[in-house]
Amino acid sequence: MLTVSVLGACPLHLPPNAIPIGACEAGFPSPAQDYVEGQLDLNEKLIQHKEATFFVRVQGHSMTGAGIRDGDLLVVDRAMRPDLGKIVVAEIEGGLAVKTLARVNGEPYLVSENPAFRPIPIDPDAGVTIWGVVTYCIHKVAN
């Protein structure tokens, strides 16, 4: 554990040894010391392909049916194959959008989880392409 206490302002001309930092241990060693493990790291859990992973913020309400709400943080993995049924970030009309990849009448479409939005056909010529696959949605519960 690192404890830091504010000792007051430190002008630049002080020598390098002027700011005490770190905590010292004293007394008996902890009985749990032999059982120390690495701490849980969310990166490890949420990120499979580090170089291909990007974070994207959700704006809007068309995916609430899939549990993705306005303001949520998405983990997007570009290395993952965009299979049918996956939720993806796609390039649509010059911007990024979150949709579900589905088949409509035998053709792949980007659909919203909200009946008020119409399915969009995937067509690179019209600027509609898949940008990456959404692997996690992080939703803030308390402030």
């Binding site: 990007f54 959700v58 068309s62 990024l96 979150v98 919203s112």
Partner: peptide, 14 residues
Amino acid sequence: CYTTRWDEIPCARS
């Protein structure tokens, strides 16, 4: 800074 600052990550419309 789309990839290095939390308050500047890209937005996706939904």
